[in-house]
């Protein structure tokens, strides 16, 4: 098989390809943002393909199994594509997307909180609760989300973004559009509330009592 000078069969990684010719290097987030700003035809699809899993995972960790999970992911990307010109640092695309996702989740949680008060509505107008799963991981996820549902939206988000998503404090605060001190306060309150409820929860108390269930 004939090979061009730009391609070496033994160049097994993108990094090596990049050393051969920059055009073959994987597209960076900054390059993708520039392509989006230029209105390049395939750029929106590439944005989605690269970040959809990360965004969806974060939204799921924030709200749990929810009928509107896909809708929120969709909203995040539609907003991002529409507002890409607002992104000042193209290299910070991922963090920016997470910030957008946090904003959409916050709105969703507040909507859900208000809807919870509308108990006088006929039940068919409220979303169906997810069916319980027999798997332990699913059971733990369901128990945790059940407790999170009792936390204020900002405290819940702070707890998940830092403790579960693993973002450092300053990045988590930025993603939540809060000052670092405000974020720390919300995180401390949220964690305290969560632990207080977890200790009383039969499915979670075992994790805190020393013995792993």
């Amino acid at each position: 098989m004939a090979t061009s000078g730009l391609f070496k069969p033994d160049a097994g990684s993108g990094r090596r390809l990049a050393e051969v010719h920059p055009a073959l290097a994987p597209e960076s987030d900054a390059q993708l943002v520039h392509a989006l700003k230029r209105g390049e035809a395939g750029a929106p699809g590439r944005l989605y393909d690269r970040h959809a899993v990360g965004v969806q995972g974060m939204v799921y960790r924030l709200i749990g199994r929810d009928a509107e999970l896909d809708d929120i992911v969709q909203e995040v990307f539609i907003y991002a594509l529409y507002s890409i010109d607002k992104l000042r640092e193209p290299a910070a695309l991922k963090a920016w997307l997470l910030g957008v996702a946090v904003g959409k989740v916050r709105s969703h949680l507040r909507r859900r909180f208000r809807r919870r008060w509308l108990s006088f509505l006929p039940h068919e107008e409220l979303p169906e609760p997810p069916a319980p799963s027999p798997e332990p991981a699913a059971e733990l996820a369901r128990d945790v989300c059940g407790i999170l549902d009792h936390l204020p939206a900002d405290e819940r988000i702070a707890l998940v973004v830092h403790r579960i998503e693993g973002l450092p404090l300053h990045e988590a605060a930025k993603a939540c559009s809060m000052s670092l001190s405000t974020f720390k306060r919300r995180l401390a309150k949220g964690e305290a509330r969560f632990m207080a409820r977890a200790e009383k929860h039969p499915g979670l108390a075992g994790w805190l009592g020393g013995a792993v269930p």
């Binding site: 969806q56 960790r61 332990p136 991981a137 733990l140 996820a141 945790v144 403790r163 579960i164 693993g166």
Partner: peptide
Amino acid sequence: WADAMANTT
């Protein structure tokens, strides 16, 4: 909790 969420996404 993090593992459970990752496994159930």
